[in-house]
Amino acid sequence: MYHFNQNEKKVKKSQTKEETKVLIFVLVSIVLILLFFGGKAYWKQRKNIDLKEKIQEELRSDKEVSVDYASPEEVFKSIRNEKTQLVDIRESQEFELKHIEASENLPLSEIKEKIDLFKKDKLIIVIDSQEQTEGKILADHLKNQGLRVKYLRGGLINYIKENYPLVSYGNPTQTEDLLKVKSITAQEVKDNLLNGALFAFVDTRSPINFKRDNIAGSVNIPLEKIEQEKNNLPAGRIMLYDEDPLRSFRAASKLFDMGVLSVYNCADDYETLKKTLFEEESDNPEPPR
């Protein structure tokens, strides 16, 4: 009995030691993981702060910044080139009004949060409204980080002066945009279909609304994705519709700016279009043939 108790104590003591070792190992691992990610976050933040400080410091110094330039022609030819990233550093409101097709908006004021969105495996072309020191400093900084970077010579002002096209917001109160878009009512859509016209229906609503209810055979390309999905548009004459006709109008205007001309916009909302096209509503109606 005595030997049994002694052995039992030894086993328990051994188990306690093993448990202590495991606990220490787990605690050390947690500390190392926290240090790793905490340090990574710190240096990422430090790098972003340094960039803002660098821009302010170089602005104060009035030092000439040397950059590699991209001509308007080179930028135009780079649109949708998989090896190029066009980065527009203007504020989002300016970008929405007019911008170069397929360019990304990374505002200089938000560069701290978006610095990691610059692609290391692509040629980056920095775009500004006009040639400005801040943009050049950013381009120089990215170049010093090992990225391949160019700066649009003369900015967007020069790009427009060279008669290269831009993608606009699509404002129905502007005559320029109104002339781009062929808008017809839901009844006119139905009349065209009954007379033998063919349309490829494109739903510019959100994916959630599209899944809930849609016109059978239609394709969902939300307004927010219309530029990126340009090459995935169906062939033939396209009929855009939305729960808010202003959204489909904007999509049609953008497509016109990108050279897609066989596009119509339904001037009525989705519910009106659906009720007009189909005598009986269903979860997945088909247009008349």
Score class of each variant (00 low, 15 high):
residue 79 I to R: 05
residue 137 I to A: 03
residue 97 L to R: 15
residue 96 E to Y: 09
residue 137 I to P: 00
residue 96 E to R: 05
residue 68 D to A: 10
residue 130 Q to W: 09
residue 132 Q to H: 14
residue 118 F to S: 04
residue 130 Q to C: 11
residue 120 K to G: 13
residue 83 K to P: 02
residue 64 E to P: 00
residue 135 G to K: 02
residue 78 S to N: 06
residue 101 E to Y: 06
residue 129 S to F: 13
residue 109 S to L: 12
residue 78 S to L: 02
residue 93 Q to I: 15
residue 70 A to P: 00
residue 65 V to A: 06
residue 94 E to Q: 07
residue 73 E to Y: 12
residue 81 N to H: 04
residue 81 N to A: 14
residue 79 I to M: 05
residue 66 S to M: 14
residue 94 E to L: 04
residue 133 T to H: 15
residue 118 F to W: 08
residue 82 E to V: 06
residue 71 S to F: 01
residue 87 V to I: 11
residue 104 E to Q: 14
residue 109 S to N: 12
residue 64 E to N: 10
residue 101 E to S: 10
residue 132 Q to R: 15
residue 104 E to V: 14
residue 133 T to D: 12
residue 118 F to I: 14
residue 105 N to D: 12
residue 91 E to M: 10
residue 76 F to Y: 14
residue 74 E to Q: 02
residue 105 N to L: 04
residue 67 V to E: 13
residue 67 V to N: 07
residue 101 E to T: 07
residue 63 K to R: 13
residue 136 K to T: 06
residue 103 S to K: 00
residue 92 S to L: 12
residue 73 E to G: 05
residue 93 Q to H: 15
residue 118 F to M: 10
residue 83 K to M: 13
residue 138 L to W: 00
residue 88 D to V: 00
residue 67 V to I: 13
residue 135 G to F: 00
residue 124 I to T: 14
residue 125 I to Y: 02
residue 114 K to T: 08
residue 89 I to E: 09
residue 89 I to C: 04
residue 99 H to W: 03
residue 73 E to F: 08
residue 113 E to T: 00
residue 115 I to P: 00
residue 131 E to W: 05
residue 71 S to Q: 04
residue 116 D to V: 08
